[in-house]
Design a binder for these strands. Structure first.
Lengths: 160, 160
DNA sequence: ATAAACCCTGTAGCAACTAAAGAGTCAAGC
DNA sequence: GCTTGACTCTTTAGTTGCTACAGGGTTTAT
């Protein structure tokens, strides 16, 4: 099948498939005379594996490790367990961070119950205070509060 | 004070301060004869405000909105409340997502209790299965499972 | 024959920085 | 006066995991 069909079969975007090839997650395929990539069932399975891992929020580096084990079926899979345990640890850590964050935000929100002028807004005044040192940057690899949504808006990074 | 002193005073990196200036969060300052930026107390306060917001995982866009209110103290601050409510909603949504993810990962982990050869590893076999459609991409802006840690390793994006 | 639908490569953009190159400035010590 | 070192400047590129072009070529259907 051609790349568009593979894309449809796995629910992946065409560009993402080519990106995975460049990133070394999918090997380069044979091409048609017209230079089109051709894929078979094994490619579809491998891509499904990758997408499944991604839906579990693993990084491409982590997935590379898992793929190495899939490609060497006689190896001992103890490292797979370890990788997964570590990943679970990261997720748990991020949940704890976000819970703390949620508490802080709710506390902040309580400082201004009804709309008034900004000069007396408890929220703005509190945010202007010093301190508050330790942010939420833990050792894990779970992202901050802002996910992969579609609210891109063009940054005004105005360097002439 | 010079940029290094401001950096020390607020616990911010020098490059980050210059980045905020480019991004329009800090206005351009006066310079010395030798072209060094000079800051006063108001700059330190504004930067503290920004860093405080960042420690609460707000985006620079959200902070821009808050700064606009700080700069216009007679405006009604109802939008501040709304912004904060929305942000709290995003955090709460991300926590729910990560809890689901954690459950899935733990279920996966249970499939392989002790190390064996990869061909019979329940984890790898499960990940190779089809399906698992809906990932964790909700509407909010809270990041995935991998945070702002220091585990960068150079991607092998081998384009010749 | 030609238009539409697909495919190709290469490059730039997103968030919020971080790092490094290459150059200039300033104060202190000899 | 001159050097050394610490600081600063601008500009550019890297990080993650894509996404979206531009500017072409190929295939398929009419």
């Amino acid at each position: 099948m051609k790349i568009g069909e593979l894309a449809k079969a796995t629910g992946t975007q065409v560009e993402t498939i080519r990106y995975y090839e460049r990133a070394g997650l999918l090997s380069e395929t044979t091409r048609t005379e017209g230079n089109y990539r051709i894929y078979g069932e094994t490619h579809a399975e491998r891509l499904s594996f990758i997408r499944h891992c991604r839906s579990l929020d693993m990084t491409l580096d982590e997935i590379r490790v898992l793929l190495r084990f899939k490609d060497a079926p006689t190896e001992n899979c103890g490292d797979v367990n370890a990788l997964l345990d570590e990943h679970i640890g990261h997720v748990a850590a991020r949940i704890r961070e976000l819970r703390t964050l949620e508490r802080q935000l709710k506390g902040l929100r309580d400082l201004c119950q009804e709309a008034q002028d900004a000069a007396h807004c408890g929220i703005l005044n509190e945010l202007a205070r010093q301190g508050s040192e330790g942010g939420s940057s833990a050792a894990g690899h779970v992202h901050g509060a802002h996910g992969r949504s579609v609210e891109r808006k063009a940054i005004k990074d105005k360097r002439k």
